[in-house]
């Protein structure tokens, strides 16, 4: 299919002896936000890591823009144009904001080209440009982690739990940012916060016990309280209903 950015088919991933992913299949269409939903430990983060090659799948196919990338080294996959924003604000904490962004340059001048766009999304970063990463608050670090993935020309962004541990107002800001960057790239998002996910994403996949069990359009899922209840738990289910 031409309009597919990423095609994952039946990947099996082991971490040590543990069979973590037992058949995850995804189709991520170009230019939209797709969200991975599921309980803690369902295998969402491992799916992202398997796509990038940090935990290489033992079986299955991963195609990025039609080219198979399974079995490739993570740094090669990343250099093909996949940006990864790991969970827990993975910045270089002893480097300044500027250095954190500069290091992600794949071509000279990448940052100069993208700087305006990045500062528009995250105005805070401009003010904090010279500060070391560990002087930033949690939310600012998360923004920096997302911003870093925007510096090179990435066609696909894998973003893991951007709302984790953020205050509601920051979640709102992060949501706006992700929404506006989805006009430039494709986004595959992992998100526990169902309300945020339901407002952002166009498509969803539910992962349960290492398998992709259900997928479709977000608009349909929001009304399907039973599925939400079954796979995502009651609390978020109730929130989803209130949308």
């Amino acid at each position: 299919m031409d309009n597919l950015m990423l095609n994952v088919s039946n990947i099996q991933t082991f971490i040590g002896q543990f069979h973590i992913l037992e058949g995850v299949s995804l189709e991520v269409p170009k230019g939209a936000i797709t969200v991975l939903l599921g309980r803690n430990g369902a295998g969402k983060t491992t799916t992202l890591k398997s796509i990038l090659g940090l935990t290489p799948p033992r079986e299955g196919i991963v195609e990025f823009k039609g080219n198979p990338i399974q079995g490739k080294r993570a740094y090669d996959v990343a250099a093909m144009g996949i940006g990864y924003v790991p969970e827990h604000r993975a910045i270089f904490s002893n480097l300044s904001v500027a250095e954190n962004l500069k290091i992600a340059e794949r071509k000279k001048g990448d940052l100069d080209k993208k700087a305006d766009f990045i500062f528009e999304l995250f105005p805070d970063l401009k003010r904090l440009y010279k500060l070391p990463g560990n002087h930033l608050s949690g939310g600012q670090q998360q923004m920096l982690a997302v911003a870093r993935a925007l510096v090179p020309d990435n066609d696909l962004l894998l973003i893991d739990e951007p709302s984790e541990g953020l205050a509601p107002i920051l979640i709102q800001q992060m949501m706006e940012a992700i929404r506006s960057l989805s006009s430039k790239t494709t986004v595959l998002l992992v998100e526990q916060n169902f309300r945020m996910a339901s407002q952002l994403a166009e498509y969803y996949y539910i992962i349960d016990d290492g398998k992709s069990v259900q997928h479709g359009k977000m608009a349909d899922l929001v009304n399907d309280t039973e599925t939400v209840h079954r796979y995502l738990g009651t609390a978020v289910g109730a929130l989803g209903g209130k949308r």
Binding site: L54, A78, Y84, F92, N94, E99, I103
Partner: peptide, 24 residues
Amino acid sequence: SPTGRVFVAIRENENRVRMIGFNP
């Protein structure tokens, strides 16, 4: 230089260097 920045990043966290697309 940019190479020197990658050196420092390796000191900070090798795995994150890999995620950005450099071979440590």
